[in-house]
Write a protein that binds this DNA or RNA. Structure first.
Lengths: 306, 306
DNA sequence: TAAAAATACTCCATAGGTATTTTAT
DNA sequence: ATAAAATACCTATGGAGTATTTTTA
């Protein structure tokens, strides 16, 4: 290690370029003696003369020229790095690995990606769908930067940022749509179709029903809301879906949607990231963009934030 | 200009490599606080966090990783430069543009190049043949590093380093070889064949003859010693050649060589370079190598240095 | 003699060290 | 309780400035 510094290289390159210590010093915004000293110092470290001083003219030695040639490349790479840094100033840029829970992903993901690409030109969104626990693990493993989940998580290592509240609606077979909306108590005695274990939405639906009744009847499970709705359509039972799912899930299924009038069940959708992630400010901007997408999709309820 | 330094880059790279401030600091041979401060300073200059600190684990931000990737390349180039410098330590390395006067080049050049390549493995000799004045001009123009000439030059800007003295010998037609060697006075009245204007050897031969006689008779000129010898062989007149030319020039010509017994004419061959050339020491080593070649070629006289 | 580089000296910014505190597991 | 990073404080190196001298064309 010779302890060469970028300054040394810059100064030497300036001398080679300007062919004069005075001018080179000027170009480097330092005094001529300062430059002389630095070059002397550089030559001492290298252990050989680099510049032939000839009173009026300067000339690089073999080694000096070799060093200048290499220095030019190095300095160019450093300047490029400078540019990268400068270009990085802004709301968000670079890769954003963003997780979604399965009961959000199909309904929000496309619009969210579009909106983020629009708002943050330098962004490269890498979306991923997984159940809450998987997303949490991947956050801690630095395999995700942030995730869209149902709050609260109460994970010590994660910061939560609520985006919007969203009601659940009842999905029944068209044949039953004339009946009144059942109460939560009644529902626990009906054939309630739920997602399989691990989905937070399953727990939320269950807690809504069990909050009053002691226990649910035998329950059919599906691995996606779409499956559940298709089952309802086939007359197997009834189910709950979040409001954002209505447009997509009722398009091809012959089912009836009913809203709860009082004490409607709901979930809070939020974005989470590692507490230690230093880009909290930028991630809140990302969250704001996602909230906007949610409000556009659900003008009625999504404005509520819990 | 962000004022990034190689130290900053080294430190950041060390952190990315070791995944821990303490270990990285150790690898950089500085204390942990010193490293913390430098990274903080670097982040301040960049204007964004580069490292996510998570108590036990570290992780690079997008920008941090980008900088590390570029830093690695830069540091590699700098290390390579270090290697180049280290490899340059030694007697002489790199390009040596070496001029020869025409009355030396054909006889010395091949052996000199071979000897230099042998003594200085890192050298790349670029030989060039031209008359003295041209060589001097090219030295001043930095188009030559050194030149082998007849001394003295008395050029203020050049340093002269004598290598060896070399006698002139008389070249006569075989038919005249039984006659006694003419004195200098006599020679100026004979048909003396000389090189054309510009060759120092012409002047040296002339001054030897004219030193006594007032003026030479009508003179035939040739543009190489070889031509002159061939003319002598054809019976046109007589000429002088330097000792080193004997082997080559008499091989194919039917001429007689005669040495001067007393007050033999001679020239001093030396190496010259710009006074300002900082590689004087190495060039003297080059000169020593050339002197050795001269002594091998002319064991009798070349040991004399004037 | 004039123009450029080197030298002499002074000053201050900062990189680095040690000791200690804070933080998160 | 422990291990790691951050903070506080101090020191010394060295980079840069101004004034001056030396060099050479």
């Amino acid at each position: 290690m010779l302890g060469l510094t970028l300054k040394h290289l810059r100064y030497l390159e300036a001398i080679a370029t300007h062919g004069q210590f005075s001018r080179a010093a000027e170009a480097c915004f330092i005094s001529q003696p300062a430059l002389s000293i630095q070059i002397k110092e550089l030559e001492a470290r290298v252990g050989a003369p680099l510049v032939e001083r000839n009173a009026r003219k300067l000339h690089m030695t073999n080694l000096g020229q070799e060093i200048v040639d290499r220095a030019k490349k190095i300095l160019l790479a450093v300047d490029e790095l400078d540019d990268v840094v400068r270009a990085s100033k802004g709301p968000f840029s670079g890769r954003l690995r963003l997780g979604f829970i399965p009961t959000v992903a199909p309904y929000l993901l496309p619009d969210v990606v579009a909106e983020l690409n629009h708002r943050f030109p330098g962004i490269e969104v890498q979306p991923r769908e997984a159940i809450t626990q998987t997303l949490i693990d991947e956050l801690h493993d630095y395999r995700l930067d942030a995730a869209i989940v149902a709050l609260p998580l109460s994970d010590q290592g994660l910061r939560e940022f609520a985006l919007f509240a969203e009601e659940f609606v009842l999905v029944r077979n068209k044949a039953e749509s004339s009946k009144p909306v059942p109460s939560a108590e009644n529902m626990s005695e009906m054939q309630l179709l739920l997602l399989e274990e691990g989905h937070c939405f399953r727990d939320q639906a269950l807690s809504f029903c069990e909050g009053l009744g002691p226990r649910a009847k035998s329950i059919m499970e599906g691995n996606s809301l779409n499956t559940l709705v298709q089952m309802v359509s086939a007359g197997v039972g009834l189910t709950l879906i979040p409001e954002m799912a209505i447009p997509l899930e009722t398009r091809s299924a012959d089912v009836a949607i009913s809203r709860f009038m009082n004490e409607a069940p709901f979930r809070t959708i939020g974005i989470v990231w590692r507490k230690s992630n230093p880009l909290a400010e930028q991630l809140m901007e990302v969250g704001a963009a996602i909230r906007q997408v949610g409000q556009q999709k659900m003008p009625n309820t999504a404005s509520l934030v819990t």
